[in-house]
Design a protein around this nucleic acid. Sequence first.
DNA 1: TATGAATGAGATTTCATTCAT
DNA 2: CATGAATGAAATCTCATTCAT
Lengths: 206, 206, 206, 206
Amino acid sequence: MPRPASPTRRADILAAARDAFNARGFAGARLDDIARAVGVSKAALYLQFSSKEALFEASVRELIERTLPEALPASFAGQSASALLRRFIAFAFERLASTEMAFVPRVIIGEGMNFPDLARFYHDEVVNRILGVIEAVLRHGVEQGEFACADPALARRSIAGGIVFGALWKIVFEPAGGEPLDIAAMARVHADTLLDGLIKREGLPA
Amino acid sequence: MPRPASPTRRADILAAARDAFNARGFAGARLDDIARAVGVSKAALYLQFSSKEALFEASVRELIERTLPEALPASFAGQSASALLRRFIAFAFERLASTEMAFVPRVIIGEGMNFPDLARFYHDEVVNRILGVIEAVLRHGVEQGEFACADPALARRSIAGGIVFGALWKIVFEPAGGEPLDIAAMARVHADTLLDGLIKREGLPA
Amino acid sequence: MPRPASPTRRADILAAARDAFNARGFAGARLDDIARAVGVSKAALYLQFSSKEALFEASVRELIERTLPEALPASFAGQSASALLRRFIAFAFERLASTEMAFVPRVIIGEGMNFPDLARFYHDEVVNRILGVIEAVLRHGVEQGEFACADPALARRSIAGGIVFGALWKIVFEPAGGEPLDIAAMARVHADTLLDGLIKREGLPA
Amino acid sequence: MPRPASPTRRADILAAARDAFNARGFAGARLDDIARAVGVSKAALYLQFSSKEALFEASVRELIERTLPEALPASFAGQSASALLRRFIAFAFERLASTEMAFVPRVIIGEGMNFPDLARFYHDEVVNRILGVIEAVLRHGVEQGEFACADPALARRSIAGGIVFGALWKIVFEPAGGEPLDIAAMARVHADTLLDGLIKREGLPA
DNA sequence: TATGAATGAGATTTCATTCAT
DNA sequence: CATGAATGAAATCTCATTCAT
């Protein structure tokens, strides 16, 4: 019994695919399950995607392309570098800790070696761009005389690292019995630590 | 061609299994390949491990148990908190960036959801202990009046995050075309950033 | 994009079907390709043919019915049996070596067992009639005292055999790397051999 | 329930494969049926042959390699060219008309275009070798002053053609309702016709 | 202990065929 | 008439697992 074509069909498939890949990994996910979740036949998947691999790549790319633009701050104008960094960290934490978004780094880390094109795409289009934004904020702060940062190209990874760690905690360790993590609190502490440093400053409150 | 039983047989199998799981993921690795790499029959694997899952878990656990002692710094006695933290960071970066050690976080991230026991084991035995060490250093620094850190339980993840990010860069993004990362330099910058903070201090060089 | 009904539509489909069946065999040919070649939808094929089998049978039958008249020589009147046979052989070689005509024997040989009706039709309408023509020439020659032929009913297959072999060479073995065959020359030699025999005759040039 | 390894296992599979390919063609034959005919699982076929195509090629090659040597005369010594040719024709008719052997040309003709390597192999190893033998006999006869044959390279196809036609008649047209063909009689008549020619010779019985 | 041989269950993929529009 | 969308049924192939030897 054929079903009507629908503009959401493709999006439905991508969402179901994402769930499946998220839950079982690329090799472990079954097209049968994806099809059943969408409510179509397996063959219907092949009307839109030429292979399981193509479906996987599309599910990753689509998510990235849909969500990346709003993940990057549009402009730095009129804000202190500290405020910019705080906002970026808070925003990134909240985003990346959501299951939908966290799916991508998880599969890239877990299966990237089997999909070198995809890993490169993710590196080029996501990781590098985000690192670029962070570095720009750092340089902006240095130029304003607000930040001291000898090597922004390396320091940016310290900032990204905490965010990634928070996301991994949420999706990997919390389900495994790790203590629940308050994302907003961790974002705040991450920003505090990075901005103020651990070493006590004279005359400043901790 | 029967081979003599050997005490290294089990270790050989575990090493080959690790290579395979590292290269292709759990589902993608084939017992055939592992057996061939060791030079035994597939059936021989079942003499030592009851299933592919068991072999996977054993290969991860064995590595953890074998390397855990050297993964933790032996003693902190008689050093400033700053020096301790620097040493720990340098030590952890170097360790985790090696392929053998990086294998564990990678598979835990990629397959942890299908191996909850293993994820919990890793969390309990490794992640939490390492985080505990970091937290101890932080508290030690606060007690000595050297550090200002309002929430060591959250701040420790900022420290760990940079380390994990460095390791992921090495094993995931460098192979995908990312720029080569100088681990020692990043360790230094990570420690600098965390200790001194980004915000410029009066009278201190950047 | 709907297209106007057209009297050539059916012929177009049959021609495209023939190409496809010729190129990949019955099972290997895809309705998708046939439809695309014609420029209609797959479903449109079903408006004219009830199944892939029906389309195949129709494509073969149509070719036979369209080409049979010109496959048989019009008249033998007023010629020597030798001349008749030479003319027939030359004519048949030339005809059967063309791709379009060779299509039928090829698919009958390859798929006849799955299409017994079609094989019988081809046998009755083509093979037997052509063999009948050959036999008539032979008997004509014997009656005229020109030929010596004890069993024209069997000998006719020796004549047809060379022709079929030539056609198969063209469509099967030349594409597979066989040496190119000069059809006209082979027709000549085939006729010579059959008429004069291999055993040397007194007083005749070899 | 595993079955004991057996030296006939491979031969059994090849025979069953030949039956299946003979009955339904390459694309139409199902590995399921072949496996069931042998009494093993489908997977067992893959222990010996890496794909359906490999099984097909092996089934053709094995048959050719097993039967071709005895089909070619070992030596021409001490026989008249006529006797040689008669013997060869009789032998070839009998052989090629058997179902086991005829399967090969049938499939090559019907599906050779999908297996260019196999078609070339069949051309090189079978067709060309047999044509070479025929041509050698013809040249031998010419050298002995027994045959007159201006172009043995073309005439050999007239000889082969009758044989092939006989085989095709047996496997294609007899099942389709064609009149039964007496192979031995046709072999005799084919040899007679080729040797003596159709044109009546003075003073010789027809 | 060790293995070669075998398999069952399931994976992806293909394609002739149908039907609402 | 015509089609885009959909599907059911099957095909090939894979692989963890078992067992007689």
